[in-house]
Amino acid sequence: MVDFQSYNKSFINGEWVKGGASKRTYQNINPYDQTILQEISIATADQLAESFRIAKESQKQWAMSTADERKEVLRKVSGFLKDHREEIIEIIIRETGGSYIKANVEIDLTVDLVEEAVHMADQLGESKEVDALIEGKRNKVFRLPLGVITSISPFNFPMNLSMRTIAPAIALGNSVVHKPDIQTAMTGGVIIAKAFEDAGLPKGIFNCILTDLEEIGMIC
């Protein structure tokens, strides 16, 4: 059992951290009966900026990882989601207000996405040779990581709509700074962060920022 509700913080550089100086909190409530699920410590704009710096630095190592290392992490993430399936379904129902059917669809889709992303890991480092116009020359085309991926996801199907960006990004040697809608912080962020932490993803590759627009603004 993982008590996901007790994770009311952001996950930055491999650690669960409280919001910084502003000290603001957000009440994550069950939309059906208005009970409070969590009192979340809101991350600040400075912490967000710091996450991008960390993600950039950490990505250099991750880009050099082997396909097997990346696959191993993703397989463990999918294992984590499957092992904790019942608790996760419970959270989806209580946090997003979704039906039992909806919660099952969401977890199944998320697991499928992660398992499909495992196959992507091989695409890094492969090169394709393309004919040259001039004899004696050789052309090679490589697929390389992009770097740091920014991910912003909504409240409706937060887990799969986050994972469809995160899993391929990590499979292909990128790092991620992810901001789920804070109304569904657990389904869209905490559970995913916990899964990657459990899977042994090196620190700084996946960062999950629990914050709101009042704190960070959307303009910047």
Partner: peptide, 11 residues
């Protein structure tokens, strides 16, 4: 979040 120079793609 959007203007950081450290990220190359926004999803």
């Amino acid at each position: 979040m959007l203007t950081t120079p450290h990220s190359q793609l926004i999803s």
